[in-house]
C-alpha cells in the first residue's frame, strides 16, 4: 500500500519536474520574440538605454510610424500577401491533381514520375538558383512579381506526397457509385475526391502560405525596387545589425508586422499543421 502510494507521488513529482522544465524551455524559446515584441512598442530612443526591461515603460506606436516614413512597409505588407497567395494557389493547382493521379489513376510510368517529383523534397533550394536567376534576367522579368512567384511554385514534392496519401485513404466505394452513374474522371476528382480532403488542403494551404510569406534569399535576389519588396526581404534594407546605431525600434516593428499574420494563421490552424507535418512522412 505504502509502496504504491509512494510510486504514485513519485510519478506526480516527476510530472511536475517535467512541467517545470518544459515551461522553462518554452520561455527560453520564446524569449527572442518577446524581446522583439517589447522593442517594437518602445520608443526608439529608449531602447538602447542600458536597463533590462521586458515591458516597455511607455508603450507607443511611434516605431511603426517611423518605419513607414522611411520605407514603404505597407506596400511590403501588400506585396507579401499578394505573392504568398499566388504561390499558394499555384502550388495547390498543380499538386492536387498530381497527388490524385498518383493515388488513384493507374498509368504507365507512375512510379517513376512519382519518384521524380518527390525526390525534389530534399533539394536544397540554392542549387537551382543560378540558372533560374539567369533565365529571369534573360526574359527581362527581373524585379517583377512573376519573378518572385513563378519559380517559387515548383517546390511541390511534399505537397504531392501528402495529397497522394490523403486521396489514397479515401474508400473505393465512394468512387464506385459515381462511376456507375457515368461520372468522368474530372468530375470524380472535382466533386468527390477534393471535397473529401478539405482538411488536408487547409493544412497545406497554411503551410504553403507561411513558407511563401517567409521566402527570403530568392526575394533578395530578384526584387530590387523598394516598392516591390516583401516584408521579409524589406527588413534587410534597414541598417546593419551589428552597429551601434541600428534603428532597433522601427526594425523590430517591421519584423513584428511580418510575424503577426503567420502567427495568427499558425494559432488558428495549429492542429492541422501539426497533423500535416507529422503524418504520412514516415509511412513506408
Amino acid at each position: 500500500m505504502t509502496s504504491t502510494a509512494s510510486t504514485a507521488s513519485n510519478a506526480a513529482l516527476r510530472r511536475g519536474a517535467v512541467h517545470l522544465m518544459l515551461a522553462a524551455l518554452s520561455l527560453l524559446t520564446l524569449f527572442p520574440l518577446l524581446w522583439m515584441l517589447s522593442a517594437a512598442f518602445t520608443p526608439n530612443e529608449l531602447i538602447t538605454q542600458r536597463a533590462f526591461r521586458l515591458w516597455p515603460e511607455e508603450a507607443s506606436l511611434s516605431n511603426f510610424r517611423i518605419a513607414g516614413e522611411k520605407h514603404p512597409i505597407w506596400w511590403w505588407l501588400f506585396n507579401s500577401v499578394l505573392t504568398a497567395s499566388a504561390i499558394t494557389l499555384g502550388k495547390l493547382a498543380i499538386s492536387l491533381p498530381a497527388g490524385y493521379a498518383f493515388a488513384r489513376l493507374p498509368f504507365r510510368g507512375r512510379r517513376f514520375l512519382f519518384g521524380l517529383v518527390i525526390a525534389t523534397m530534399s533539394f536544397p533550394a540554392v542549387l537551382a538558383i543560378i540558372p533560374t536567376y539567369i533565365a529571369v534576367v534573360k526574359i527581362q522579368a527581373f524585379d517583377t512579381y512573376s519573378a518572385m512567384i513563378v519559380p517559387s511554385i515548383p517546390y511541390i514534392g511534399f505537397y504531392v506526397f501528402y495529397f497522394r496519401q490523403a486521396f489514397r485513404s479515401l474508400p473505393d466505394e465512394m468512387f464506385e457509385a459515381a462511376r456507375i452513374d457515368g461520372c468522368g474522371i474530372w468530375k470524380q476528382f472535382r466533386d468527390i475526391a477534393v471535397p473529401n480532403v478539405l482538411p488536408a488542403i487547409a493544412a497545406l494551404s497554411v503551410i504553403s502560405f507561411m513558407g511563401a510569406w517567409n521566402i527570403y534569399l530568392w526575394g533578395q535576389l530578384v526584387l530590387e525596387d523598394s516598392a516591390r519588396k516583401t516584408l521579409t526581404t524589406g527588413i534587410a534594407m534597414f541598417a546593419d545589425v551589428d552597429g551601434a546605431d541600428t534603428p532597433w525600434g522601427p526594425l523590430m516593428a517591421t519584423s513584428l508586422l511580418s510575424v503577426l499574420p503567420v502567427l495568427g494563421l499558425f494559432l488558428l490552424a495549429q492542429r492541422y499543421i501539426v497533423q500535416a507535418f507529422s503524418s504520412g512522412t514516415v509511412e513506408k
Binding site: W35, M36, N214, L251
Partner: peptide, 20 residues
Amino acid sequence: GSLFLPTILAYSVAGVAWSR
C-alpha cells in the same frame, strides 16, 4: 506551440530577433 513557433518565422526575422 511555443517550441514550434520559431519554425514558422522567416530567416530574416530570426536573424533580426537574435542580432539584438
